[in-house]
């Protein structure tokens, strides 16, 4: 069973449908016991960092997430909230990854980045059987910079962390649930993690 964390940021339905297509059972919940006992946890998110962190703190979901022992996958805003700090609303985040989340700045490229871009430099079983520069779908104005925990990169305005990993915590900036067969493979790889 996969627990998808329910909170005030985002559209979790697509993640659940994606798992359903893989034949994986999931539940959307904010119940501590259910989340703790799940084999895998997905922390999705679309929205603004500040109200999302506020919501998580008020319900002590922040402490719950940080203390999880099973594989956890953050998606999009989920990845950003798992970093130290986000420039979006000058928000202190969960601090799982030792990274800063910054706003893209460009005079010629559009912000947010919307669409399909390459991922490369894989350093995790999450990308097992994928090919360097495979395409994934992203929608975001903020990014996590490169660091020791970077397990895949994408270039937009600058190279940034397309994915991060520390211990049992994994996170991707793009949307695997919307990234066609490549995204499906990544979700499958996550489900297979032990």
């Amino acid at each position: 069973m996969v627990a998808i964390i329910q909170y005030n940021a985002g559209n979790v339905q697509s993640v659940q449908y994606a798992l359903q297509r893989l034949g994986v059972e999931s539940i959307v919940t904010d119940d501590e016991a259910l989340i703790r006992s799940a084999e895998k946890v997905i922390f999705p998110g679309v929205g603004h960092a500040a109200p999302a962190m506020k919501y998580l703190r008020e319900r002590e979901l922040d402490q719950l997430i940080n203390s999880l022992k099973q594989p956890v996958l953050g998606i999009c805003l989920g990845l950003q909230l798992m970093c130290n700090h986000s420039e979006e609303g000058d928000t202190v985040c969960l601090g799982i990854f030792n990274e800063q989340v910054r706003l893209f700045h460009s005079t010629d490229l559009k912000v947010p980045q919307i669409g399909w871009n390459n991922i490369y430099d894989f350093r995790s079983p999450l990308f097992h059987s994928l090919t360097e520069n495979d395409f994934v779908y992203s929608v975001h104005s903020y990014y996590a910079s490169l660091g020791n925990e970077t397990i895949a990169k994408t270039d937009y305005i600058l190279p940034y962390s397309a994915a991060l990993q520390k211990d049992n915590f994994y996170a991707v900036q793009f949307h695997p649930e919307k990234s066609g067969p490549v995204g499906e493979t990544i979700l499958k790889n996550f489900i297979k993690l032990s």
């Binding site: 490229l109 980045q113 669409g115 399909w116 871009n117 390459n118 490369y120 520069n133 395409f135 994408t154 270039d155 937009y156």
Partner: peptide, 9 residues
């Protein structure tokens, strides 16, 4: 040649 970056949709 591989040229990484956002693609046209």
């Amino acid at each position: 040649p591989v040229q990484r970056g956002l693609t046209r949709r």
